[in-house]
């Protein structure tokens, strides 16, 4: 553990708007937001990425799930300023050159959504799962999306989509 007291210490930023630099879907971007602004609101309001949804804004639904440094997190409970220097991935970054990501494809094929409002979050959770577990079981998928509520009740198809996306990628 470092024992040397730092002389100046880390800069104190805010409370007004500050410039922050982020990497979102592989692109270096910047935004001018106060420290209290969440990653979710920054994506939606400053960066125009409205795919991540705001449903509860308090870590109780999963609709705002994005991937930060390869791990799924709730962007509504994450400060944007705390993501500086990290890699943020959102639903908008999955499809490449008009080709859907295998998980997106699997969702369409399995009819894994109804209103679609939870869908971006569900998909991001499963994309993160597949990075660690390329061929997940049903139980693996259930564990991964247990933090993503779906009020329409598309769960059976979501689980099927997650399993088949794993198979498809192999």
């Amino acid at each position: 553990m470092p024992q040397v007291p730092s002389v100046n210490g880390a800069a104190l930023r805010g409370p007004g708007p500050i410039d922050i630099a982020l990497t979102v879907n592989g692109n270096a971007v910047s935004a001018r937001v106060p420290p209290r602004r969440t990653l979710l609101d920054t994506l939606r309001e400053s960066l125009g990425l409205t795919g991540s949804k705001r449903v509860c804004d308090e870590g109780t639904c999963g609709a705002c799930t994005v991937i930060v440094d390869d791990r799924p997190v709730y962007s509504c409970m994450t400060l944007a300023v705390a993501c500086e220097g990290k890699r943020v991935e959102t639903i908008e970054g999955l499809a490449k050159d008009g080709e859907l990501h295998p998980v997106q494809r699997a969702f369409v094929d399995a009819d894994a959504f109804q209103c679609g409002f939870c869908t971006p979050g569900q998909i991001m959770s499963i994309v993160a799962l597949l990075r660690a577990t390329p061929a997940p079981s049903e139980a693996d998928v259930r564990r991964a999306v247990a933090g993503n509520l779906c009020r329409c009740g598309a769960y059976p198809n979501i689980v099927a989509a997650g399993v088949s996306a794993g198979r498809r990628r192999k």
């Binding site: 730092s6 409370p15 209290r36 705390a82």
Partner: peptide
């Protein structure tokens, strides 16, 4: 509104 710091030490 609040200020924010992320020290390393």
């Amino acid at each position: 509104a609040f200020s924010y710091a992320r020290p390393t030490a």
